[in-house]
Design a protein around this nucleic acid. Structure first.
Lengths: 81, 81
DNA sequence: AACAAAATTACGCTGCAACGTAAATTTTGA
DNA sequence: TCAAAATTTACGTTGCAGCGTAATTTTGTT
């Protein structure tokens, strides 16, 4: 399970894995958050334009929370956005 | 230093503390991210409408990264959004 | 292969983030 | 105390997320 995330793509992937680990579909998340399935899809696919409220709602549905920590290694240029 | 964040307000507060711990102003973050000072202000004040890209850019500037973890205690109703 | 479930994409619409610029307000340090 | 610095707020503009709805494509089973 991927825990660390510096990019929207990594966050999306982590959310997708967490969802599947629970055996849920995007429709299940949609029902629990009142967000459209298309929105969940977009988020899981790493859209950095996603609103923070959307990310937090999905995380709440999955029973997850954020932890802000110091970066370990150096970030690649591709990790800035 | 607050590490755990379930809400935009908690994320904003964590970013503000991290910034001040480095002795930086919002203007410093602005210069490093090309985001407007007003945008940084809005984020630090807990605007859940902030885009994920904005949060990630500020976190990169501060040398921070996210970690997605299972929620520990029960969330208050006010923590859902 | 074939069918069903799930995920992605599309289109028009509404709302709002972030922009440039700048003013108002709050905080800070001499 | 009080000006400088920092933060917040304002206003018109632009771009796009997320909505409703629905079609299309992909994935998973038999």
């Amino acid at each position: 399970m991927e825990l660390t995330a510096r990019t929207a793509a990594q966050i999306g992937e982590a959310l997708r894995r967490s969802r599947k680990a629970r055996g849920w579909t995007q429709g299940d998340i949609s029902a629990r958050t009142n967000l459209r399935v298309a929105t969940i899809s977009s988020l899981e696919n790493g859209d950095a334009g996603t609103k923070l409220a959307t990310v937090l709602a999905v995380m709440a549905a999955l029973g997850l929370e954020f932890r802000l920590t110091e970066r370990g290694g150096a970030a690649g240029i591709e990790d800035i956005f």
